[in-house]
């Protein structure tokens, strides 16, 4: 049993030790916009992965903070929201660190139907506002 306990504690230390590269994916036809949003996300050290969806006048950014920094993910979310809004003042921006949004946007990245993406983004925005 002791070995098991030690193992459980050692694996995370190991995982935290090797810092992987950030993976950021964007769904957009506009190359310039893509690079900008990637750059903004990349500037936040706390984030290890993120998806951004541009659709019509909407921008949905779903990110995942590093698990050991999750305790301050609401602050990370707010900070990033502000930064993204500054870069895209014309767009309706929503930044979320919620896993649900990250999971769903992951699926949207390969979705071809624009109409469907738009509907899905609307739905996710509503979901993100629910409190209980």
């Amino acid at each position: 049993m002791k070995k098991m306990v030690v193992a459980i504690f050692l694996i995370p230390v190991f995982l935290i030790g090797c810092n992987q590269e950030q993976t950021i994916e964007v769904k957009d036809s506009n190359e310039e916009q893509s690079e900008t949003v990637k750059e903004v996300i990349r500037n936040s050290d706390e984030i290890y992965t993120g998806n951004a969806i541009f659709i019509e006048d909407q921008l949905l950014v779903a990110v995942q903070a590093k698990p050991w920094l999750d305790y301050k993910k609401r602050k990370i979310e707010k900070k990033l929201q502000k930064e993204v809004e500054e870069q895209f003042p014309d767009l309706e921006v929503l930044v979320s660190a919620d896993y649900k949004l990250y999971w769903e946007t992951q699926k949207l990245l390969d979705e071809g139907d624009e109409q469907k993406v738009s509907e899905e983004v609307e739905k996710l925005k509503k979901l993100a506002k629910e409190e209980t």
Binding site: Y99, K100, W103, A128
Partner: peptide
């Protein structure tokens, strides 16, 4: 979260 419409908050 994955199979239903729940977020981390709900």
């Amino acid at each position: 979260i994955i199979f239903f419409n729940f977020t981390e908050t709900t």
